[in-house]
Write a protein that binds this DNA or RNA. Structure first.
Length: 907
DNA sequence: CGGTTGCATGCGTAG
DNA sequence: TACGCATGCAACCGG
């Protein structure tokens, strides 16, 4: 019994959902980042198995400059430019604006669009510099408008849709958020419609309170300005004053509010000086919006708190960072506070009392009644609880993260495969988002004050901690392209001082990151097409693609297996009795599922019925599944630079929902429209926005479809040509001693085998190639890249892009076929090869092919990029290419899932 | 008497 | 020096 990817449909199941409501919901198969393609990006990147191409990690796109992937920005014209190019362009635009107006007011949305989208979703930490520059040109209301715009933008396609429609910007988000807030409900917005009012009194209060707060605090902003927007906005302003800090709680933003006089009632202060008690979004709390895969919602990481002994104690009081409490929780004027409903990662809603104690002249905010929740999560002192908000619902979500030690012990005690993968999902998602958004990470270990993490950190960095600074400085050198990063760097240095301090803030080290990555993978596995959603089948050439109009939803994680007979099964674990039940492969299960709902096996529709599998078989199943996933994950490079969750969050927060990076990357971004301008004729722009244009039918002859078809046709022709060449070669080789003449096939084979082997030998595969091999591989990949189907390419850069070797459907198909193909060829020639080997030691390619059959091929395409490699600064372009190629391996790694699909299914 | 609640104290950090 | 936060501790409450 082999564990499979579960894709059995003859129609490729596309893990991409086209949202009529606006854009796409998707997870990047490359890096796992959740990303959203706004309505403007109503295009799809056809790859072997569907449309997906993460703008975040698509390293292949580059403008020719020496730029790491983190510095790439989708350009207006549909191509990609490096950040320096974009920046210079933006700055010139900004500076030529003699009379700056709020961005939202700008007559041409281009500018705003340019600034917002690029800055918000593509740039790294250095864009804070750009932002500041922009801010410096704006005053008061304009800034607010800017922030409003920004927030609007951050809200995803919604804002963009409205902007595009020419509706007033200011207040839109507020009204939108307001209207949806009360309908808050965890999960899909559909579900949000249920019990909304009665179940979310707290949320309602919160929102209203927030709204009030914002009304009083915002300067010149329309009353409709959303509460959620304002804190962020203000935080950005303050972010200028407050150097960027770690996003951990405790890295206090030092609001420096006006000191409240003794005897001054907080309420009075608030009333008289709203800003005194106004939500001050701690810069650390604001993470970029993240798309919640289950719906069109986005997860907005707010803040997190490392549990102190007191917090985790029996008292049941969780001390909240003041700034966070004031920023993200409803303002409270009475010490009694109010009840807050917060949903945990399991979906259970908890009600806490959010209140404060007068403390000196300040307040001390606490959440009371957290003991049950803490216990439910099995949290201890040192663990971290995270608070996030689901937008647009506005629902508060509480996640958690175990400390390294706790998680380690947890791992030891938990089954390899949990039947409740969603248990950690949100925590995983929330924590992963920032991490994944960052590829390089000068923050990975820096600032970690967690004893456990520091140990590792100290191992990896010089004992004196200079490594951090050096790294930062290096970053500075690379990024300081006309913009001072000092504001960013200083905090880094400061943060390093936190190490060893009393702070218990945690950062995620690589180990955690890997673990979280697994969690993310699990999360990915949970995605299912909406049960009642009928996909429209888009047939392009001979390939069928499912197009969904609704966001994916969470389904119960199941395990797919393929028996020796070829039949496939799906196994699901009962949430009640934990028994595993066999189900048809095409069955979709809700997150919570029990035996009683097993309508497919009348004999096992009760928890009382024993497991169908013997303990041994079950163990084997779980083990295989775990192995399967591990291999899949392992095949993805884990960049040691990836900012740890907290740091990344911090960065994201500091940079205003948008940037993370510091030149580093960043991360998990909710990709926005790549700033195409009116008149742009790129494939992105010519396609009507989601939900607005006619649906593409197989017979559709619109430009987009025609372009797609044309390109696809070209690809298919190339594929056929190659196939015929291969066939010819195989035929020839059967008649002759194998001595490949076709360099391409040769290299392809090597490449495939290399990849396969690399997955088997994680971490050392790259080194296994000698330079010539690498050259071949590169050449091969480049070759296949020429056939890629890229719907977002820059027409003028087609050539360069082709060279940039983007993964193509063709390439994927080819590569996917290679292991088996090579295997067969090898087998067919084994005797010959043996003979030849005996005499000349020949080409017999290294083993490993067999592995290709059993293991998901995706493993094979992800040569792990050594951390060192990722740290290369000032890499030359050709080096970049190498990186890109390596990345391409990574890119393909996930597609391996699809490749395995293609091996399992007739497509 | 044990648990809860509210406040006070002291330490660490940032300005 | 101001501030935030962890925690101590006394007052209060209820069984």
């Amino acid at each position: 019994m082999n564990v499979t990817c579960g894709v059995t449909s003859s129609i490729k199941w596309i893990k991409g959902w086209r949202l009529r409501s606006g854009g796409f919901a998707n997870l990047c198969d490359h890096c796992g980042s959740a990303y959203e393609l706004s309505v403007f990006c109503d295009t799809f990147h056809l790859k072997e198995s569907g449309w997906r191409e993460c703008y975040t990690c698509n390293k292949r796109l580059h403008c020719g400059c020496i730029a790491s992937k983190a510095l790439l920005v989708l350009a207006d014209n549909g191509g990609v430019q490096c950040i320096s190019c974009i920046r210079s362009l933006e700055l010139s635009i900004i500076r030529t604006d003699e009379k700056p107006a709020g961005i939202s007011m700008m007559p041409t949305s281009n500018v705003g669009e340019l600034q917002l989208t690029s800055l918000d979703y593509k740039m790294g930490g250095d864009d804070i510099g750009v932002k500041e520059l922009m801010l410096s040109n704006m005053e008061g209301k304009e800034r607010n408008n800017f922030f409003q715009s920004q927030r609007d933008d951050a809200n995803g396609s919604l804002g963009q849709i409205k902007r595009e429609q020419g509706l007033p910007l200011v207040g839109e988000v507020g009204s939108t958020t307001f209207s949806t807030f009360n309908e808050a409900y965890f999960g899909s917005t559909q579900l949000a419609k249920q019990n909304n009012h009665k179940d979310h009194v707290g949320g309602k209060d919160m929102y209203e309170s927030l709204a009030q707060t914002c009304l009083t605090m915002t300067l010149g902003v329309s009353p409709g300005a959303t509460s959620s927007a304002q804190p962020h906005a203000s935080s950005i302003v303050e972010g200028r004053e407050q150097s960027r800090m770690s996003l951990q709680q405790g890295q206090r933003p030092r609001p420096r509010t006006s000191k409240m006089g003794l005897g001054t009632a907080p309420e009075a202060s608030k009333d008289n000086h709203p800003q005194l008690r106004v939500a001050r979004p701690p810069i650390e709390g604001r993470g970029r919006n993240q798309l919640l895969p289950s719906s069109n919602s986005t997860i907005v990481p707010l803040f997190e708190k490392v549990l102190s002994a007191s917090d985790a104690g029996r008292i049941g009081r969780l001390v909240l960072p003041k700034a966070c409490a004031e920023a993200y929780f409803p303002p409270i004027s009475q010490p009694e506070g109010l009840a807050l409903r917060i949903q945990d990662v399991k979906g259970k809603e908890w009600q806490f009392q959010f209140r404060f104690w007068p403390n000196n002249n300040s307040r001390m905010y606490v959440l009371e009644g957290v003991t049950p929740c803490i216990h439910s999560m099995q949290l201890q002192a040192g663990d971290t609880v995270t608070f996030s908000r689901l937008d647009p619902e506005g629902k508060l979500v509480m996640g958690f993260r175990k400390s390294a030690s706790n998680s380690a012990s947890l791992k030891d005690t938990q089954p390899a495969v949990s039947n409740a993968p969603n248990e950690n999902f949100f925590s995983g998602v929330i924590e992963n988002l920032p991490r994944m958004s960052g590829q390089s990470g000068l923050q990975s270990f820096k600032g970690s004050t967690d004893p456990h993490l520091n140990v590792l950190s100290e191992r990896l960095y010089s004992a004196d901690g200079d490594a951090n600074l050096c790294k930062v400085e290096k970053q500075e050198g690379r990024l300081n392209e006309g913009l001072s990063l000092q504001p960013l760097l200083t905090p880094e240095k400061k943060r390093s001082r936190n190490i060893g301090s009393k702070s218990k803030r945690l950062l995620i080290d690589n180990e955690d990151a890997l673990e979280l990555k697994l969690t993310w993978e699990e999360a990915h596995d949970l995605l299912r097409p909406p049960p009642r959603a009928t996909p429209s089948i888009v047939k392009i050439e001979d390939y069928d693609f499912e197009e969904y109009e609704e966001a994916p939803i969470f389904g119960k994680r199941t395990i797919f297996t393929s028996g020796s007979s070829g039949g496939q099964d799906q196994w699901a674990q009962c949430d009640s009795c934990s028994k595993w039940r066999r189900l048809p492969v095409d069955v979709f299960l809700p997150v919570n599922w029990t035996c009683s709902e097993n309508a497919w096996d009348s004999q096992r529709c009760s928890c009382s019925v024993p497991n169908e599998l013997s303990p041994m078989e079950l163990e084997n199943l779980l083990r295989l599944n775990m192995d399967f996933k591990r291999r899949k994950v392992a095949s993805q490079p884990v960049h040691d630079h990836e900012p740890s969750g907290l740091d990344a969050l911090a960065t994201a927060a500091v940079l205003g929902d948008n940037r993370l990076d510091v030149g580093t990357s960043l991360v998990a971004t909710t990709t926005k429209h790549p700033r195409h301008r009116p008149g742009c004729t790129c494939i992105v722009c010519i396609q009507p926005p989601s939900g607005k244009g006619p649906k593409h039918k197989p017979t559709c002859t619109c430009n987009v479809c025609m372009t797609v078809k044309r390109r696809f046709k070209t690809l298919m022709m190339r594929k056929k040509k190659r196939q015929s060449e291969k066939e010819a070669e195989v035929a020839q080789s059967k008649n002759q001693i194998w001595c490949p003449k076709d360099e391409e096939v040769e290299s392809a084979s090597q490449s495939a085998m290399l990849v396969v082997e690399s997955s088997e030998n994680e971490g050392r595969q790259v080194n296994m190639l000698d330079s010539s091999d690498q050259t071949k591989v590169l050449a091969e990949k480049t070759e296949s890249s020429k056939a890629h189907l890229d719907l977002n390419f820059h027409p003028e850069r087609e050539d360069s892009q082709a060279v940039s070797a983007r993964i193509s459907m063709m390439g994927l198909l080819q590569v996917a076929n290679r292991p088996l193909e090579t295997y067969l060829r090898q087998n067919g020639l084994s005797s010959l090869a043996t003979e030849q080997q005996a005499s000349s030691g020949s080409h017999a390619p290294p083993q490993a092919i067999v592995e290709g059959e059993e293991r998901p091929t995706d493993d094979g395409y992800c040569p792990t990029v050594p951390p060192q490699a990722m740290e290369q600064e000032n890499e030359q372009e050709h080096e970049s290419e190498h990186e890109h190629e390596k990345e391409s391996g990574g890119d393909m790694s996930d597609d391996g899932l699809d490749k395995s699909q293609s091996q399992n299914e007739p497509v």
